[in-house]
């Protein structure tokens, strides 16, 4: 699949601080891509490099086939981490204004603004000044402003932060709609459930470097599968189950197993039956993305937080 966005060995420093180091990633066209990392991991700097607001010290990038986002800026949408709008403008006019800056005619931009506001539940607020809207509404307006020109690539920096659960659902709906019409989406977030639900691929950054890049299931496979197993009576045979890396006895007939990387839970279950173990419980727990994230960035994130 063609890449809508590609970074190859990109680095950027500010004085002695290395904000981004040797970062490489590839975002397939039409996919949803998660951009994860703790605070200070280099996410915003990377996004600014992608958008052409900052020049990398070294490395190459390709945005919709162009070496610079500025030459394809009308095909790219962007929502920054810290949200803000012109408080005296109306919701419709502010969306239309940003759409005209992305090449739409004034008439078309106004049409699109009202169409989007109507579709996502803000039709009644189209002519209200931004300063009169709630924070969540304002944030939705800004998301709509970043996509009003029908971009092929959308970069969203922490789009879910500050939204209540209902509006988070609306935003998910917006992202699903964008994907459905072929738009490539890259978004950063600290909420792993959004990544698990929405992303085809993801990258986890730490200390300015890419620590992992791949699919959600590939990320999960970085940590061992865990099984809670309970038998009707105490059994000494457990130690010889296949693929078990470690075992913690929680009682005389209850254990917590951790499998070797690549080992399968079904093989363990099959082996239990072969040994005629009378199972009362066989509970498989796949590692979630949160655990993978903490496992990968934990030490460096703590360092950053304490600095």
């Amino acid at each position: 699949m063609l890449a809508a966005l590609e970074l190859r060995h990109v680095s950027k420093s500010f004085g002695r601080f290395h904000a981004v180091q040797d970062l490489s990633l590839s975002v397939p066209a039409g996919s949803v891509y998660g951009f994860l990392g703790p605070n200070g991991a280099g996410k915003t700097t990377s996004l600014r490099i992608i958008l052409g607001m900052l020049s990398p010290d070294s490395g190459e990038l390709s945005v919709l086939g162009s070496p610079s986002a500025m030459s394809v800026r009308n095909r790219v949408g962007y929502l920054p981490e810290e949200k803000g709008l012109y408080s005296k403008m109306t919701a419709a006019s502010v969306i239309a204004y940003f759409a005209t800056l992305k090449g739409l005619s004034s008439t078309r931009a106004n049409q699109r603004a009202r169409e989007l506001l109507g579709r996502y539940g803000l039709g009644a607020f189209a002519d209200k000044k931004v300063e009169t809207l709630s924070k969540g509404m304002g944030q939705k307006v800004q998301v709509l402003a970043s996509i009003a020109h029908d971009p092929e690539l959308v970069l969203l920096d922490e789009p879910f932060s500050g939204l209540d659960p209902v509006n988070q659902e609306v935003l998910e709906e917006i992202l699903v709609d964008l994907k459905a019409r072929g738009c490539t989406i890259l978004f950063s977030t600290h909420v792993m459930s959004h990544v698990e639900r929405l992303c085809d691929r993801l990258i986890i950054l730490g200390g300015g470097r890419g620590l992992f890049e791949g699919t959600v299931s590939e990320a999960r496979s970085l940590l061992p599968i865990r099984i809670t197993l309970e038998t009707a009576e105490a059994s000494p045979l457990l130690e010889i189950l296949p693929g078990v890396r470690s075992m913690e006895a929680q009682s005389s007939n209850r254990w917590r197993l951790e499998l070797e990387p690549g080992a399968s839970a079904s093989a363990v279950l099959e082996s239990c039956f072969e040994r005629s173990l009378r199972l009362r419980r066989f509970d498989v727990q796949d590692p979630d993305l949160h655990e993978v994230f903490v496992h990968l960035v934990g030490p460096s994130a703590r360092e950053t937080a304490l600095r």
Binding site: M53, V76, Y78, P80, K83, L85, Q142
Partner: peptide, 9 residues
């Protein structure tokens, strides 16, 4: 932070 949006355009 409107500047950031403007500078993407």
């Amino acid at each position: 932070r409107i500047l950031e949006v403007l500078l993407s355009s």
